[in-house]
């Protein structure tokens, strides 16, 4: 783990998951772990509106969340937060949402040279498959190391195999997708919660020996669960909904 941590440039294997910490670390949560990096909310090239079908719905062992990752666009984010990131004690990882390679390259260039932005995290748009995923990931290559988020339910072996050659510095196992029926209506979103933990560990085990650091990006709701993920081969763990408890 120490070897991977050093490769990722973090002093502790704990960090928050994108979308659960805002653009600045500024609140105390129930998670007592010392963080090794701060991952920003997802940011896109252009301002992004909330999803029309937003949803928050609990289920036993977790909750479904769909927000659409609304954000004011990278220019406004940088204007407001880049000066504050510089003074943060934690390295900042900026989570990027891009629809195509052109958008991604623009954002990557804008972030290069921003003090204390130590890495990028790439979220792939829904519906992007195989070759298109690979093309987008290839566009993230630049001066900053980058990790790629793939949901537990969307690990395409062809893409996972190619990540090292595409220049990725790590693979983040992010929250899977799900549907909850409520009053006859299908609520769609990502699933979060400790109920995902066994599934996460199984995927981590399956990736043992993989050429890149793997970050456990979901299913961590206690120190024990984080330690278990690290013991199963995770290079780091990212805390999602646990960040919101106080």
């Amino acid at each position: 783990m120490a070897e991977w941590s050093s490769e990722l440039g973090i002093s502790s294997p704990w960090m928050n998951a994108a979308g659960f910490g805002g653009f600045l670390p500024q609140h105390e949560s129930a998670c007592p772990a010392q963080m090794g990096a701060f991952v920003t909310n997802p940011v896109s090239l252009q301002p992004r509106s909330p999803a029309r079908e937003r949803a928050v719905q609990s289920f036993p062992g977790g909750f479904l969340l769909h927000t659409g990752h609304s954000n004011p666009g990278i220019k406004r984010v940088l204007k407001e937060y880049a000066p504050k990131w510089r003074t943060q004690p934690l390295p900042v990882w900026v989570h990027l949402l891009a629809e195509d390679a052109y958008e991604l390259q623009q954002m990557v260039r804008m972030l290069e040279g921003i003090e204390n932005v130590e890495a990028l995290e790439l979220g792939l748009p829904p519906g992007l498959e195989g070759r298109a995923q690979i093309d987008l990931i290839a566009a993230a290559r630049g001066e900053l190391p980058f990790t790629v988020c793939l949901p537990l339910d969307g690990l395409n072996p062809a893409v996972v195999e190619k990540l090292p050659d595409l220049g990725a510095a790590g693979l983040v196992l992010s929250a899977p997708h799900g549907i909850i029926m409520k009053k006859g209506k299908a609520l769609r979103g990502r699933l979060y919660g400790p109920g995902l933990h066994p599934q996460l560990l199984a995927v981590l085990r399956g990736l043992r020996g993989y050429a890149l650091p793997v970050l456990a990006g979901c299913g961590i709701y206690s120190m024990e669960q984080g330690d278990a993920a690290l013991a199963c081969g995770a290079a780091a763990v990212q805390v999602d909904g646990w960040c919101w408890k106080f």
Binding site: F20, F23, N41, R54
Partner: peptide, 10 residues
Amino acid sequence: PCADGVGCGA
């Protein structure tokens, strides 16, 4: 659902 300053957008 979210904590202070997170702005999850829900």
